[in-house]
């Protein structure tokens, strides 16, 4: 097997304040192969976005990626890299698409200028070449009449078109990895499907690997090859998407699946996971899901170990599908 394009080991990010440290990303590890799409799923506050920002080295103080974490991009260790070198990798080898295209694009600069700045950040380029390259990429993401649209401002685009522009900016320098942080969440459902299909096509054409962060299992399942389910900053279950969704081992994954509206009878109440995401500042000592879990027993007050059963893995004392009970 080829070496992974992105290899994450024990990634831990903490926010330090007067009250102490809050761990928002807790020992996250995974490998991403070339052209592979990994879905990072979990509820709000599970640390999935923070994992994304940690990968590209954009954690603002008082947040800090802790020693012992390792993120290797194309074999190169990113943790501990000087800001300058890290900046040259951002947007060139690894880039990011955000949730809300209304907020990400600068409203007072033309699309062409914003794209030119991104190109110019990674090497000298004259205006004419920058325009040509930008128009080419805008065309690839499905913007009609791309050359003329370079002189337009973000407010002259619809939401879906704006997200296409943001995606164009992310793939402008042909990165090896794209971190997509809920890129369809802020869009209309019909537009979501278009963007999803567009991104799937783009990464397949370029062989770009992608980390698709989402709380929406339905969209993730249609794009991801593998899934990592996050809870309280940890990956609690991972494996090939079809297997994880078809036969979840962790009760939390089961709970997420059950809360999908399509899993309930029409008219019946939606099944919810009882309780709420725990405060990261006050996690239970054992399994963080224990207070909300129907299968919890006294063992669950101790921290569960990683169980690795390639291609799958989970962190649970009482995984589903193991005993008949």
């Amino acid at each position: 097997m080829n070496p992974p394009v992105l290899s994450v080991r024990g990634l831990t990010t903490r926010f330090h304040n007067r009250a102490g440290a809050v761990t928002v990303v807790d020992g996250v590890s995974f490998d991403l192969a070339r052209g592979e799409v990994i879905g990072l799923v979990g509820e709000s506050g599970s640390g999935k976005s923070m994992t994304g920002f940690s990968l590209i080295g954009l954690i603002d103080a008082p947040g800090r990626i802790e020693a012992g974490s390792s993120v290797k991009l194309e074999g190169r260790e990113l943790i501990g890299l000087p800001d300058r070198d890290l900046r040259h990798l951002r947007g060139r080898r690894i880039s990011m698409v955000f949730q809300d295209p209304m907020m990400t694009l600068n409203p007072v600069l033309t699309i062409g200028e914003q794209m030119r700045l991104v190109l110019a950040a990674h090497g000298r380029i004259d205006r004419a070449s920058a325009r040509a390259r930008s128009a080419e990429v805008l065309g690839r993401v499905g913007i009609p009449d791309p050359t003329a649209r370079l002189d337009a401002y973000p407010h002259q685009f619809s939401g879906g078109m704006r997200q296409r522009v943001a995606i164009a900016i992310a793939i402008l320098n042909r990165p090896a990895v794209i971190v997509a942080d809920e890129p369809t969440t802020a869009l209309d459902v019909s537009i979501q499907a278009q963007i999803l299909a567009e991104m799937r096509r783009l990464v397949a054409e370029d062989g770009t690997a992608m980390i698709w962060i989402s709380h929406d299992l339905a969209t993730v399942s249609s794009i991801a090859d593998r899934l990592c389910v996050m809870y309280a900053g940890r990956i609690v279950e991972h494996g090939p998407a079809t297997e994880v969704l078809g036969a979840p081992r962790h009760p939390y994954t089961r709970g997420l699946l059950d809360s999908l509206p399509s899993q309930s009878e029409p008219g019946a109440d939606l099944r919810q996971i009882p309780g709420a995401t725990p405060s990261l500042a006050a996690l239970p000592p054992g399994c963080p899901f224990e207070p909300r879990c129907g299968r919890a027993d006294p063992v669950c007050t101790t921290r569960p170990e990683d169980v690795e059963a390639p291609p799958r893995g989970w962190r649970c004392h009482h995984p589903l599908g193991e005993t008949a009970a």
């Binding site: 947007g91 907020m103 991104v118 900016i169």
Partner: peptide, 16 residues
């Protein structure tokens, strides 16, 4: 704002 985060994520220098 996300505008600045997005610009940083695209590798723009702090000066830019």
């Amino acid at each position: 704002t996300d505008t600045v985060k997005f610009a940083r994520a695209a590798g723009l220098s702090e000066w830019t």
